[in-house]
């Protein structure tokens, strides 16, 4: 394997990310492809901290910190100004799952519906990690968090944010993860090239403290999420044409994904939930495969 990942760095070392931070890695990988003609918006999220305490800053692009629920619309405002100034700068909204699935959903929906010319990246670590691991609507069923304790783990499945984005018919949306850097890089390149409209990347990003696992298992956990089809990698054009971009090259049971992470410990006592997840995962995968094939058939026709 020879990586296509560029050598240029747009994230300086010395960030305040925890050891093995998937969010930091996602940023590093995404910026490598976006390049330096970019500006980013950071709403409240881990990256509010990771970027460094004032007067320090780790990224080699300008960053505007903003309120929790405003990533998409602040990016919209920046883009409007840049457009008015005749500049082609790529404007990135970089939000966590809380800032995307929950509190930021309204502004995100607004920007998506208006087809704003921004690149929205949700780095999803599946809970409010910065505040100390509280459930979000991105938290998967059966998960422990401090607000879904072992006695009452997360009762509901993860919100399907990609379906929501698809419903907005935005030009480009994709799932990605830093465990598949070349796939991630290609999607970022595609998204940057699709300027002119709304682009959404849903990037699964491991959180070793929040997922309750050793820091060195971060990549493996994300990889298993993909291989077990819990987090399939695909892209979606105009909310309609779906293509699967990474086909798991080996069978990985959902249990192999769960067992790496202490947050899934409640599932040990909930075999029915595990079976339910298994069938949900299989069903969703089949639906993706069907849509993929339909896309291929249409493209061939």
């Amino acid at each position: 394997m020879r990586w296509a990942v560029p050598e240029a760095e747009f994230m300086d070392p010395g960030t305040l990310g925890c050891q093995g931070c998937g969010g930091a890695l996602s940023m590093r990988m995404v910026l490598k492809e976006v390049g330096d003609d970019a500006a980013a918006v950071l709403p409240a999220c881990c990256w509010s901290i990771i970027d460094g305490p004032w007067p320090l800053h780790s990224l080699n692009i300008p960053v505007l910190h903003t309120a929790f629920e405003t990533a998409a619309v602040v990016a919209t405002g920046i883009k409007a100004a840049k457009r008015h100034q005749g500049k082609d700068t790529t404007v990135i909204a970089w939000a966590g799952d809380g800032g995307t699935f929950d509190i930021g959903l309204q502004a995100l929906s607004g920007a998506a519906e208006r087809n704003e010319d921004i690149l929205y990246v949700c780095y999803d670590n599946e809970a409010y990690m910065n505040t100390g691991i509280q459930r979000s609507s991105a938290t998967p069923v059966g998960t422990w968090t401090t607000t879904t304790p072992d006695e009452r783990p997360e009762p509901r499945p993860k919100k399907d944010i990609m379906a929501i984005m698809a419903a907005h018919r935005i030009p480009y949306a994709a799932t990605a993860t830093s465990a598949y850097p070349d796939d991630l890089a290609r999607k970022v390149r595609t998204a940057v090239a699709a300027r002119g409209g709304m682009r959404f990347l849903h990037v699964l990003s491991a959180c070793p403290p929040g997922w309750k696992m050793p820091a060195d298992q971060a990549i493996e956990a994300m990889r298993r999420a993909v291989l077990s089809k819990v987090f399939p990698l695909y892209e979606l054009r105009n909310g309609r044409d779906l293509t699967i971009t990474v086909w798991p090259d080996r069978e990985v049971a959902i249990e192999e994904y769960f067992e790496l992470q202490g947050r899934f410990a409640p599932l040990e006592h909930e075999p029915q939930t595990v079976e339910q997840i298994r069938s949900d995962v299989a069903e969703r995968w089949q639906a993706l495969v069907d849509r993929h094939e339909r896309t291929m058939a249409l493209a061939g026709a």
Binding site: A39, V41, L64, T66, A67, T70, V73, V74, A75, T76, G77, I78, K79, A80, A81, K82, H84, Q85, A107
Partner: peptide, 11 residues
């Protein structure tokens, strides 16, 4: 929030 973004970008 849109004004915040636009103003921060110099508009």
């Amino acid at each position: 929030a849109a004004c915040v973004g636009a103003s921060a970008a110099g508009a």
